[in-house]
Design a protein around this nucleic acid. Structure first.
Lengths: 243, 243
DNA sequence: CGCGGATTTGAATAGTATCAATACAGGTGG
DNA sequence: CCACCTGTATTGATACTATTCAAATCCGCG
């Protein structure tokens, strides 16, 4: 609440930033109102529809972005076309390979996505002024590293059933806003990924993903309507199946 | 060369640091001679024999270290004991979860390892003084993230044969010092990991690893003596099998 | 030389992929 | 508003890869 009041009374905060999630938990949380206005001069909000490519592998990076809404998938492809999803980014995650000249992954909008773009130079010069900003980015990269390593365990050592459960658990805890409330045992959400994307994330085929979903449904661990909408009545029961 | 001269003439550089690889390519490359002596007051070199645990999962982190010699493996374990190697660290890599209070992985000496330990507080206070140091750490974390994501592709989408080839290729390019010479087509090295470790790295069983090694041997892609010593006569031919 | 752990090899099995057919959902035009 | 159409998802039958269990061999070491 005091937070809210401050916003209202401090007209220094750029209008576009006022309701922005990234300002609190994202990158911009490291900035004071002055820096925020400075940076906001260079930012550009944009909507990207599901499936559109945001950054190509080995493409030169000229700008960064914060995910404001939706889910971005990071993928890598082998020469023969086999694909692996190597990361999912939710609001208010930061998008882009910091300090690198080219991206090592493809970034694609998995759902409709809103991004807040900022030119590489603008962010990097602000980073020079404000070490807290680089520190914030470091925290994000460390979190991504932890997530990548967690997922390596899933990819290398879990069965198909455990993989699918782990995926649903991951999405449930990231997508259902009500989940933060302590003691909440159930979750409801729309899957941001197609079966093909899920398969590429889990290192499985779409048929195997589908079969495991069917099994979870018949075991009453999940309810699915319209292929995308999922209800998990008891998250603990789902977690038990994650291996 | 001028680099070398500076060392000889500048007696400020601590004796223990003079021949240290980490001073050039590792973390300490961000430090000037004064900072180096300051930090060296707190460092402690130690040898750890193969198999010894360096940091436990969820153990509180009180010190960091640079790998001076040998290979460290980072692992994660599921409740039922299934294990996954989530990273390998070679000299002069940095070891330890920066800014985290506890480690999220187990670190174990895969071979005999020399570490240069430094207390968490000493490094972190120096990081406050010198943003270049944090920047250097950021680079290392970013590299680890890239490696983790590359490995996710291997774990999720490659066949057993491709996994084993990829592993051998990784080790060859990291372990054979002669490999840096351009145009070098062959490599020779000792495997720093047992078959069990390799299996845990690749998400396979030891039997499958063994069978694939046998196949590579009978296809004349590698020569193996004493189970550990490997010669790759033509690296390109190995690379072709990495998928 | 013989012991014990590590590695290789073999045979049977289980789990996942592949190929093929059917069912379903969402959008389009009549 | 409904029938159609297209892409997505499910279900089924079979093939294949990697695992499992078991045995033999190799290697370092006392």
């Amino acid at each position: 609440m005091s937070e809210r009041r401050k916003d209202i009374h401090n007209s220094d905060i750029p209008v576009v930033c006022r309701s922005c999630e990234a300002r609190h938990n994202g990158i911009c949380g490291a900035l004071d109102p002055g820096e925020l206005s400075q940076l906001a001069k260079h930012t550009r909000m944009a909507r990207h529809s599901s499936g559109s490519e945001l950054v190509g592998d080995e493409e030169e990076v000229t700008s960064y972005a914060s995910v404001m809404k939706g889910v971005v998938k990071l993928t890598k492809v082998l020469k023969d076309g086999r694909q692996q999803v190597v990361g999912l980014q939710f609001a208010p995650d930061f998008l882009g390979r910091i300090f690198g000249h080219e991206s090592h992954v493809n970034a694609e909008a998995a759902s409709d996505v809103d991004l807040c773009h900022v030119p590489k130079s603008a962010l990097e010069s602000m980073m020079k002024e404000n070490p807290a900003l680089e520190h914030r980015l470091m925290q994000q990269v460390l979190r991504e590293l932890d997530e990548a390593r967690d997922w390596m365990v899933t990819l290398g050592r879990k069965t198909a059933a455990e993989k699918v459960s782990s995926f649903l658990y991951l999405i449930a805890t990231h997508m259902d806003p009500a989940i933060d409330a302590q003691g909440r045992k159930s979750a409801t959400f729309d899957l941001p990924l197609s079966r093909a994307d899920i398969a590429d994330f889990l290192g499985l085929t779409i048929e195997t993903v589908s079969r495991q979903m069917t099994k979870l449904r018949s075991d009453n661990v999940i309810e699915v309507t319209n292929n995308r909408h999922v209800v998990v009545p008891d998250l603990e029961r789902l977690e038990l199946r994650c291996g």
